[in-house]
């Protein structure tokens, strides 16, 4: 757990120090990827609290979710359908779900 927090802090510092920013055309992809990353992170936290954390599942979930969400976003832009809304909606719901379970587990303890 402490590693995760330290990693997050390192990441934030790295992001602040990195010059430049995301070009506007890639902004939707990036936001969707961020959503997927957050979702996986919360999923991992929940799994860790439930006690069935699996590193492989966590890692593969992290990257595959990001890849899929970015692909969906791309396909949506290609087809002129706002797929990224679906991605953000589903991932957002999952984040809330995970958070609710984490909260319950935390309170139960």
């Amino acid at each position: 757990m402490i590693y995760a927090v330290i990693g997050l802090i390192f990441g934030i510092i790295g992001g602040v120090l990195t010059p430049g920013f995301i070009p506007k055309i890639y902004a939707p992809y990036f936001s969707v990827a961020l959503m997927a990353g957050l979702d996986t992170a919360f999923g991992g936290l929940r799994a860790a609290m439930e006690g069935d954390y699996d590193n492989t599942i966590f890692l593969s979930g992290f990257f595959v979710n990001i890849a899929l969400s970015v692909f969906l976003c791309y396909a949506g832009i290609m087809m002129d359908i706002d797929f990224y809304l679906i991605v953000i909606l589903v991932l957002g719901m999952r984040i809330f779900n995970n958070l609710a379970i984490i909260r319950r587990l935390f309170l139960k303890k």
Partner: peptide, 26 residues
């Protein structure tokens, strides 16, 4: 914490770095 070995810790660490990086960049 159910992080069992060093290997896992490093990976979680890396993933969190990426996540933090993405949040700030966004």
């Amino acid at each position: 914490t159910t992080v069992k070995n060093k290997h896992t810790r490093i990976l979680v660490f890396l993933v969190c770095i990426i996540l933090g990086f993405m949040i700030t960049m966004q």
